[in-house]
Design a protein around this nucleic acid. Structure first.
Lengths: 224, 224
DNA sequence: ACAAAAGTGTTGACTTTACACCCATGG
DNA sequence: CCATGGGTGTAAAGTCAACACTTTTGT
């Protein structure tokens, strides 16, 4: 850096996505293992440097696609992180997003130019992460809790439809809290998020549950 | 820009604050008139380029202080703006904040190195602004509406205390909505945001109102 | 005593919570 | 006919919305 310019020069932008899934009542996040410096060998959230020819959201999508192959899921920006020393290389500000997806839809790309591993990790078993990603992830989890009760963000978790008991388990896993079955059903249905498909789930030793789908139109929601 | 590097190079970060005040039932925002390119002669929100030696919030504070002299008010980050062409000079991403303050506490610095004017402008009379500041401001106004019902952000508007009727007028101005006097009082007091000072306002041709103060500790709020 | 705004309580509508029994299914 | 989880209704508690009269003050 040169004097005079040094206050402004050599800055960059990260776009970072905390991509969540829920499997059997366990909330997990996609982590990537770095195979380059800085933070060689550390796990991190998906993301990277923003290009000049893309918007923030486009950058977040590109990074997601490079690491997971997925496209077209809704993501939500929730905060910028700007500690002076958050990157050892140069001054980087991170714009953080969250998303949630059915992990079965994703073929994680385990090896790539910058990664030597990728995995879904339960959020109560998160290792030390590179950069400030532990901090970003912990705020992302809070944001996720807010968003599932204020948006139809869960739609991308259940592209093929969902039964109300399954949905309840998902809410309970994310919010870490139990709900009364009858009241949950009434509440969810009263929100008009779901539409009846007139199909039924498979037998699993009990009465099959009705399958609903998330509607596309997002009405104003204030929930649970 | 050079090939190879060009995707990443010459990026920078803006920190932009929409600083609000409320005067006689009118919500106003502090605007600055630029006296340099780009956007010479245009009005903009307060803000500027982030330095490498300061966090995002420190940058926002520094810019506010340069333009208004104020310090120590709470500000809240609410969104990053990253349209590719939002700055004509180089790739800039803006981190946007809101704050609110009693305008009587501020001596606006009307002339400075980069500004040829500064004024409180009613939010329904906003001119065309430089950069993407019209977009930022319009989202800031929405954020302000959210925040006054979910935080004690109004504390910085009333450092010396507030009567409930005054507070109601402020809510009504910001939310553009009328409330029932009795219900408003009950609701606000039930939130435990305010503490009684046992002082009374001055006579203004009527019964003086009791003065309350915002408490310092922010309890969990979900309001109005 | 008047004008002007402050302060106060109750009722009905609605929303939220708590809770128990019957139902459909495959084995 | 059994085990398992799915589906349903109701009453009590709590919250929100609507509404009118009395109080205090300086002149």
């Amino acid at each position: 850096m040169r004097v005079g310019y040094e206050l402004y020069k050599n800055q960059g932008i990260h776009v970072i996505t905390s991509l969540f899934t829920v499997e059997q009542g366990v909330v997990k996040v996609l982590l990537i293992k770095r195979k380059n410096e800085p933070f060689f060998g550390d796990w991190v959230l998906t993301g990277g440097a923003l290009y000049n020819n893309e918007s923030l959201e486009e950058g977040a999508y590109r990074e997601l696609k490079e690491k997971t192959g997925i496209e077209n899921i809704p993501i939500k920006q929730f905060k910028a992180f700007g500690r002076v020393d958050r990157s050892p290389v140069m001054r980087m500000v991170a714009i953080a997003y969250i998303g949630i997806i059915d992990s079965k839809r994703v073929n994680i790309i385990r090896k790539s130019r910058n990664t030597s591993g990728a995995d879904w990790v339960p959020i109560d078993k998160i290792p030390h992460l590179g950069y400030d990603h532990n901090e970003i992830l912990s705020e992302a989890i809070e944001e996720l809790k807010k968003d599932i009760v204020n948006s139809n963000i869960l739609k991308s978790l259940f592209p093929d439809g969902i039964t109300i008991p399954e949905l309840q388990k998902t809410y309970e896993a994310i919010l870490n809290k139990k709900f009364d079955r009858r009241n949950f059903r009434k509440k969810i249905l009263s929100l008009n998020l779901l539409e009846d498909t007139n199909q039924y789930g498979k037998f699993e030793g009990n009465k099959p549950a009705k399958i609903y789908k998330f509607k596309n139109d997002i009405e104003k929601i204030t929930v649970l």
